[in-house]
């Protein structure tokens, strides 16, 4: 029997799910290999659990989603976090550092509906996640590769190379050396270094690596005359719910004190 795969979404823009649909030439093969039983963008079919693989897009930002994600975990053999929102909160987690009331007022004006909103967090803050497919949006071939590994019975190994590895494979000019405002050396690779290959600095959307040398990185950025605000903004964009962000601000202070 084909494995039952369900795709769910929490708070997100659906961009990562759309990226899956962009795997046009592989969609038939995917449909032959797995039984997609829940995919709002792809099929009207909704089947009850249990599922072999649940792929979850989006951050947990509302009380209802906490319940839903726990239900998904209970009903799935494997749970995969899909995209930056599910892996570490995503851009909406920027609001975690702001006052909720102020934001609500900014958006809804004086009549604020009942929202039940929480700090936006990656799904692994609530449940055990078996694997992460990183990026904003995800890379479709990265997705395909990880899916195939699950199908053949492997537990995929996280790609812990920095973006720089694939960037150098593509014989690119180093954006970090040119601009200083590139997060390639600090970010999980696996995206094929798509941004630097197209002349854009890395935005850090895949999240901060474990083996990163932030202090050295900040030093270099400062040497390139990048201001503290810009540095903070760079690092905050995709890792605001990351516990290490606090450590990062501390480190920035240290570097400033030393220089």
């Amino acid at each position: 029997m084909k494995p039952r795969v369900a795709i769910f979404d929490m708070t997100s823009c659906d961009g990562c799910q759309t990226t899956i649909l962009n795997l046009e030439e592989y969609l038939v093969d995917i449909a032959n290999a797995v039984d997609i039983v829940n995919f709002r963008l792809g099929t009207e079919k909704v089947s009850p659990g249990p599922y072999d693989i649940s792929i979850v897009e989006g951050s947990i930002s509302r009380q209802e989603e906490v319940k839903k994600i726990k239900w998904i975990r209970e009903n799935s053999k494997t749970v995969i976090a899909l995209g930056a929102c599910a892996t570490h909160g995503g851009p909406q987690a920027l609001s975690n550092r702001l006052n909720k009331k102020d934001i609500h007022k900014e958006i809804y004006g004086n009549i604020v509906p009942k929202l039940n909103s929480l700090d936006a967090k990656g799904i692994d803050q609530y449940i055990k996640v078996d694997h992460y497919i990183r990026g904003c949006p995800i890379d479709k071939f990265d997705f395909l590769n990880i899916l195939k590994q699950f199908l053949i019975g492997k537990i995929p190994k996280e790609n812990t190379n920095p973006v720089c590895v694939e960037c150098r494979f593509n014989e690119n000019v180093c954006q970090f050396m040119e601009l200083g405002a590139c997060l390639g050396p600090f970010t999980y690779g696996g995206c094929g270094a798509i941004c630097p290959t197209n002349n854009l600095p890395c935005d850090g959307c895949r999240g901060a690596l474990d083996d990163l040398n932030l202090e050295a990185g900040i030093r270099i950025m400062k040497k390139k005359n990048i201001g503290d605000d810009k540095i903070k903004a760079l690092f905050r964009k995709y890792v605001p719910s990351d516990k290490r962000y606090e450590k990062f601000e501390e480190m920035l202070k240290n570097v400033n004190n030393k220089t």
Partner: peptide, 30 residues
């Protein structure tokens, strides 16, 4: 080494570095 970002640029651009990983990539039919 405190200045090193471990980005691997030195070895990837080196003309005498040849270390590699062996990786299997199955098709969807497995």
């Amino acid at each position: 080494s405190e200045a090193c970002l471990s980005c691997a640029a030195c070895t990837i651009t080196c003309p005498t570095c040849g270390c590699f990983d062996v990786v299997d990539v199955p098709n969807l039919n497995m």
